[in-house]
Amino acid sequence: MQVDRLSQITLTALVAGLVVFGLLTVGGPGKGRMEKRDETRWSDLQELSAYIRCVADTDGETLPGSLDPAVGTCQRDLRLEDPFNGAPYNYARVSDTAYRLCAGFEDPDWLVETGGAVIDRATGCVQFTYTP
């Protein structure tokens, strides 16, 4: 009887240890929600980038000075602010062929690890290149 009880306690401790190890490795449900929010932000920046490229293609291969998705042939229903905290996404024209889009990523390392972009971890900015 004593051996059965010891086996049961050992097995329970092993399973609990594996669950804790799994949560520490994967990050748990909070990490998953954070990644999902960052995935939405990244998707929004990709949509904005597609809009910017459309404007440049139809406007003499010139990057726009600002984001105004309600004007011109590239008119789209774009989200210009973070849906989770209301902070605006930032756009900056860096040169005639480069621009930056910025968002408040919660875990920019996740985005880098997925191969999604080269991101400035401190600012949440991603630099894009426009090639006419």
Rank of each mutant, 00 (worst) to 15 (best):
T97W: 05
Q46R: 07
V15A: 07
D68T: 06
Q8K: 15
A122V: 02
R76I: 01
D4M: 01
G124R: 07
S7R: 15
G116T: 01
G124L: 09
A117I: 05
V15N: 08
A103V: 00
D120E: 13
L23Y: 13
D82Y: 11
D44H: 15
G22T: 14
E61G: 07
I119N: 08
L18R: 08
R53E: 14
C125M: 11
V15Y: 05
G116K: 14
E81D: 13
D109Q: 14
L67N: 03
A98R: 12
V20Q: 01
P88Q: 09
T129F: 11
S49P: 03
A16T: 12
G22I: 01
L67Q: 07
Q8R: 13
R79A: 06
R76F: 09
Q8I: 04
P88T: 04
M1G: 14
T73C: 00
E81S: 15
V20F: 08
A70Y: 12
L67K: 05
I119C: 04
F128S: 03
F21I: 01
Y89T: 03
P64L: 11
Y91A: 03
D59T: 09
G65T: 02
L18D: 06
D77L: 11
R5L: 11
P83D: 04
Y130N: 02
W110S: 11
A87G: 10
A13C: 13
L23S: 05
F21T: 03
D4A: 11
E35H: 15
S95H: 10
Y89L: 03
P69A: 04
V71I: 09
G60L: 12
T114Q: 15
A13R: 04
W110F: 14
Q8D: 12
R5E: 10
G86R: 13
L111A: 09
K36P: 00
P64Q: 10
G30M: 05
L11E: 07
W42P: 03
V55P: 09
V20I: 13
T25W: 14
Q8V: 04
D120C: 02
A56C: 01
A117N: 08
L18K: 10
R121I: 06
D77Q: 14
R79T: 09
G104S: 12
V94L: 12
D4V: 02
A122S: 14
A50D: 11
V71L: 09
I119S: 03
D107T: 11
D59P: 03
A50I: 00
E61M: 02
G27F: 13
Y99V: 01
P83N: 06
G60C: 05
R53M: 06
F84A: 09
D107S: 08
W110G: 03
N90Q: 14
E35D: 14
D4I: 00
I119G: 03
G65D: 15
P88E: 07
V19R: 03
L80N: 04
